[in-house]
Design a protein around this nucleic acid. Structure first.
Length: 493
RNA sequence: GGCGCCUUCGUCUAUCGGUUAGGACACCAGGUUCUCAACCUGGUAAGACGGGUUCGAUUCCCGUAGGCGCUACCA
């Protein structure tokens, strides 16, 4: 038999911003398809209209685009941010498949695999409360399961309101075959007759998702672990319809520090907000890919293409993984440093003062702090002193350790003269500046510490900062001399 | 409550019966150094617990504990 073309999908609900866990789910599905040279599609699961958030789909696509997770089929947005649908298996928006779902539900009823249920929501609610009070297992009591199909049909035709429920076996067991977890067995008698078609005519997830996966030729169903307990119902639908079962892979969850399901309450979970904060797509992808899966163990940095090449569904971990920002920071720092200078500067520039018009100076400052940044925005606090017209020396010591003020004065005056004797292009070169200054210090028989410390503090007014040579090279001659003059003036005051 | 899943350094993970249990982040120390960062070197740190199976278990099986998930006309 010819090998089936791999088709995977990411099928989020348009209920808000894209969850960071959703990004990983999407990524794994995409890696799977791209590796096999198959198809990766985006389907929107909007069967719960009460939770629908306008604009959520567009937002979702925008975020996936920024992350570089691009489906080749299904829902997407065009250059004008308008929703489009591509492919031969559409529509790819579930609410638009309502009639198909209804037809499947009826078919299931006709085959005796599902039945009409006329129970009111109020009655069901009461029943559930009663079950809870008496500590009985909650679940549908099967009232309508017993109704004669012909009679049920009449009631439906008479216009009575109904839902359709699965008519699940009451004995025996099912075994779910999962690539990540192996065989998992469930007792049928513990599984409730699930509603598959709601009163409003819309299918629930259980029917909609299975029907669409089948209709769209999905070969690999990758989804979050919380779906594992309902997989028996899904298998039941597949088998009742005579469909070929897909490969199931229930992904481990992303968790909070306390191991609960990653939630808004305990931190940021929106992918977009991470992007807004300045986390780079490549850092996010790299980090997320390694949360629950590891191709080699002795390598941390992977490009998207490498991930495609190495991805292996069966090597995914079973346990939940904590979304640890510390390591994300490290990845971001790595990718920030690796960026071409122009791209790096474009990222950092918005965080530098607008009123500074010397772009070349700004670039030099940006580069100066590059290896210190986890996020582009951090440049602001780190470099703000460099853009101030005058510095406040009152909080720092311009003299080296326990040395005297006169010494600092002497060294600064000398340094000023040295720098004045150089030309601008020489100052701008860190290596030349360092060599020149160090040689002069040596010529005078002075120490590096007692000279360089006052110099550096004169230039920064900071306890900690880049070296005086780096600062001078970033400032240029004019700004450097201005700073030394200011420090000199402060010292003689 | 019922059912299911999970359990290796603080965190992310490697190990597919025999390893000094490896790597990365974080942390600590040293080196470099005018300070800081970076960088280099080194270090602290783990198989939840109890039984089996086996010549030998982190690895296989059972149990316990803990964590998490599901238990909707939400996904």
């Amino acid at each position: 038999m010819a090998k089936k073309r791999v088709r995977s999908r990411f099928a989020p609900s348009p209920t808000g911003q894209l969850h960071i866990g959703g990004v990983r789910t999407a990524l794994y599905a995409e890696l799977l398809a791209r590796q096999a040279d198959g198809d990766f599609l985006l389907r929107i699961e909007d069967t719960d209209q009460s939770r629908f958030v306008p604009g959520a789909t567009e937002n979702l696509c925008r975020t996936l685009k920024r992350l570089g997770i691009v489906p080749n089929e299904g829902v997407w947005t065009d250059d004008n941010d308008q929703i489009i649908q591509r492919g031969d298996f559409g529509p790819y928006i579930q609410s638009q498949r309502k009639e198909k779902h209804q037809a499947y539900a009826k078919q299931l009823v006709d085959m005796g695999k599902a039945y009409y249920c006329f129970c009111s929501e109020e009655r069901l609610e009461q029943m559930r409360q009663q079950q809870e009070i008496t500590k009985q297992p909650t679940g549908y009591d099967g009232t309508c399961r017993k109704i004669d199909p012909a009679e049920a049909q009449k009631r439906v035709e008479a216009g009575e309101q109904y839902v359709i429920r699965l008519k699940l076996p009451k004995e025996g067991s099912v075994t779910v075959e999962d690539v990540i977890r192996g065989k998992v067995t469930f007792d049928w008698k513990l599984i409730d007759d699930q509603v598959i078609l709601k009163r409003d005519g819309m299918a629930t997830y259980h029917l909609a998702s299975m029907a669409d996966d089948h209709d769209m030729g999905i070969t690999h169903v990758t989804r979050a672990e919380e779906w594992l307990p309902s997989t028996p119902k899904h298998i039941f639908i597949y088998e009742a319809m005579g469909w070929e079962l897909p490969i199931f892979a229930h992904l481990p969850q992303l968790v909070n520090a306390d191991r609960s399901k990653l939630s808004k309450r305990q931190g940021d979970v929106s992918a977009e907000s991470y992007l807004e904060k300045g986390y780079l797509p490549e850092a996010l992808i790299n980090f997320l890919a390694l949360l629950g899966w590891n191709p080699k163990a002795d390598q941390e940095i992977y490009s998207h293409d490498e991930l495609v090449e190495l991805f292996d569904l069966s090597k995914i971990n079973k346990a939940g993984a904590f979304f640890n920002t510390e390591k994300l920071n490290w990845f971001n720092n790595h990718y920030l440093r690796q960026k071409p200078v122009d791209e790096y500067f474009a990222l950092v520039e918005p965080h530098l003062p607008d009123d500074e018009k010397d772009i070349d100076f700004k670039r030099r400052v940006a580069l100066l702090f590059r290896e210190r940044l986890n996020l582009p925005s951090e440049i602001k606090d780190l470099s703000s002193f460099m853009f101030e017209s005058t510095l406040d020396y009152s909080k720092v010591n311009l003299t080296w350790k326990d040395h005297i003020k006169e010494e600092a004065l002497e060294r600064l005056k000398a340094a000023k003269a040295w720098i004045e004797s150089m030309n601008e292009s020489l100052v701008l070169d860190v290596k030349t500046t360092e060599e020149t200054i160090k040689n002069k210090i040596k010529d005078n028989g002075w120490g590096n510490g007692d000279t360089l410390w006052p110099l550096r503090v004169a230039l920064s007014a900071q306890e900690k900062s880049p070296s005086p040579f780096e600062l001078m090279a970033a400032y240029g001659q004019k700004r450097t001399i201005k700073r030394i003059d200011d420090a000199l003036a402060y010292l003689v005051k």
